[in-house]
């Protein structure tokens, strides 16, 4: 079954950390102060980060497990 995971467009990410703050699973880190990185092992695809992101650079992507 396909699962939903958060996917960050790293070139447009401003590394503000809003997504990291809102993630209930602590699955997001701000890698080197440059962009948000999602740990797909932890991500449950709730979509909170995508909703929060002020630059709207996070999308929910279907991944096949």
């Amino acid at each position: 079954m396909a699962k939903r995971k958060a996917s960050v467009c790293t070139t447009d990410c401003v590394a503000c950390g809003c997504c990291m703050k809102v993630c209930p699973r602590s699955a997001i880190t701000i890698s080197g102060g440059i962009y948000a990185a999602v740990d797909e092992e932890l991500c449950v695809g709730c979509g909170k980060c995508a909703k929060e992101c002020p630059a709207s650079v996070i999308s929910m992507r279907e991944v096949t497990a």
Partner: peptide, 15 residues
């Protein structure tokens, strides 16, 4: 107009 923290997108300090 946009998301609450949209200032963060173009904040000069952030950039």
């Amino acid at each position: 107009l946009f998301k609450p923290r949209s200032w963060c997108v173009y904040c000069p300090m952030g950039t």
